[in-house]
Amino acid sequence: MNNSASSSGSGTTRTFEFGRTHVVRPKGNHQATIVWLHGLGDKGSSWSQLLETLPLQNIKWICPTAPTRPVAIFGGHPCTAWFDVADLSGDGPDDLEGLDASAAHVANLLSTEPANIKLGIGGFSMGAAIALYSATCHILGKYGNGNLYPVNLSAVVGLSGWLPCSRTLRNKMEGSIQAVRRAASLPILMCHGLADDVVAYKHGERSAHALNSVGFRNLTFQTYNGLGHYTIPEETDGVCNWLTASLGLQGSRS
C-alpha cells in the first residue's frame, strides 16, 4: 500500500511518498489498534515481524514505512526517514513540514478504525519521536501547521526516542485548559537504555521531563541498564504489560 501526504508551508507544498504498510491482525477479539513506527533507515516489515510474536491477542498493529528522503545527519544521503534531522536529540532545527506530514499519515491510518476501538501510536528512535510529537498534536487538537488533529489517542509508547518541538510546547499549551486536561489523562510510556550510543539517554530523559513539566502527568519513564540502541525481551514484556493495563485489554495475554 503506497500513500502520499502533502504538507504546506511558506507557499510551497511538498509531497512525501510513504513506503509499504504492513498489518498484523489481532489473534483474538479486536480491542485496540496501534500504529508502530520504525527508526531511521528501517522499514515497517522488520517491526511487524517482531510485533507478530508478542503475546497480545487483542491488538491490531499497523507498521507503515517512512518516505525515502535526503537526511541532513547523513550529509543529505537519502534513506527512510519520518522527517529530516540534523542530530538525534531534539537540539537541531525542527523539520515541522516533515513532522506534520508523518503525523498526518499516522492519524489517517488510525482514522478508518471502528469507533469502539482504542487507538495508540508507538515507535522506536525516530519513530518514537513521531509518536511523542503526535501525542502533543492530539492534546493541542492540531498539527504544527494549525490543521485539526483528527483522532483520539488512548496510549503512546516511545522507545529510545526524543520529543521534537519541545522548546515551543509550553507556549502552545499556555491558556488552553482543554490541552492541559487532555495531557493529564493520556498514558505515555517512554523507555530508554543507559548505554544508548545513538540517541543518548539524557535526550530521552530530558524529553520526559519536558512532557511532564507541561502537564503530561500519566507518563512512565523506564530506564534499562546496559541497553543500547535496540530492544530486548525485557523491554517488550514491559511494553506488553503497560499496554494491557493502560488500554484495559481483556484476556489479552496468551
Rank of each mutant, 00 (worst) to 15 (best):
M1Q: 12
N3F: 12
T12L: 14
R14P: 06
T15E: 15
F16K: 07
G28P: 15
T33S: 15
L40E: 11
G41R: 10
G44K: 09
S46I: 06
L51H: 04
T53P: 00
P55V: 02
K60L: 05
W61Q: 02
I62Y: 02
T65R: 06
P67C: 14
T68D: 11
A72P: 00
F74I: 04
P78L: 10
C79I: 06
T80C: 08
T80K: 05
F83M: 09
F83T: 07
A86Y: 01
D100M: 10
N108L: 07
L109C: 13
S111M: 09
T112C: 05
A115C: 07
K118I: 04
G122S: 13
F124I: 01
A129K: 00
L132N: 14
Y133V: 01
S134A: 15
A135G: 07
T136Y: 02
C137L: 05
H138E: 03
L140I: 06
G141A: 09
G144N: 12
Y149E: 07
Y149S: 10
P150C: 12
A155C: 13
S160V: 09
W162G: 01
W162D: 04
T168L: 09
L169H: 09
N171P: 00
K172N: 06
G175M: 10
A179V: 10
V180M: 13
R182P: 02
A183R: 05
L186D: 07
P187I: 01
C191R: 02
H192C: 11
H192E: 10
V199M: 11
K202E: 15
G204T: 10
S207W: 12
S207L: 09
A208E: 02
H209N: 13
A210M: 09
N212Y: 06
G215C: 08
R217Q: 13
R217A: 11
N218R: 14
F221H: 14
N225T: 06
N225L: 14
G226W: 05
H229D: 10
T231I: 11
T231Y: 01
P233L: 02
T236D: 01
D237Y: 00
D237P: 04
L243I: 02
L247E: 09
G248A: 03
L249E: 00
L249R: 08
Q250Y: 03
R253I: 13
